[in-house]
């Protein structure tokens, strides 16, 4: 089984810190590039994904995946006539 939380935190703290710094620097770089023409839904997806990280409930990875996914319509076969 995987290690307990204190052990995992010891092992992963610096990696997680580095990933957050990368993301923060990415965002600063985007802002330095100036305003986007019109609304770009990708930025909102990124913001929604970061909000999920701060939630207190799992599964965060699955929720982030869903944010970046197209909607599934169960009636797709009739829509496509297949």
């Amino acid at each position: 089984m995987s290690a307990d939380t204190p052990t995992l935190l010891d092992r992963q703290f610096l990696t997680m810190r580095a990933k957050l710094l990368e993301l923060a620097a990415d965002w600063d770089r985007l802002e330095r590039g100036g305003e986007l023409a019109g609304n770009d839904s990708r930025l909102e997806q990124l913001r929604d994904a970061v909000r999920v990280l701060l939630e207190e409930s799992r599964p965060r990875a699955e929720k982030v995946q869903t944010i970046f996914s197209r909607r599934y319509d169960p009636s797709w076969r009739s829509a496509m006539n297949i």
């Binding site: 197209r70 599934y72 169960p74 797709w76």
Partner: peptide
Amino acid sequence: EDKYQGTRMILD
């Protein structure tokens, strides 16, 4: 972005 929709279509 196509994975979830496509996987569900394939399973259907």
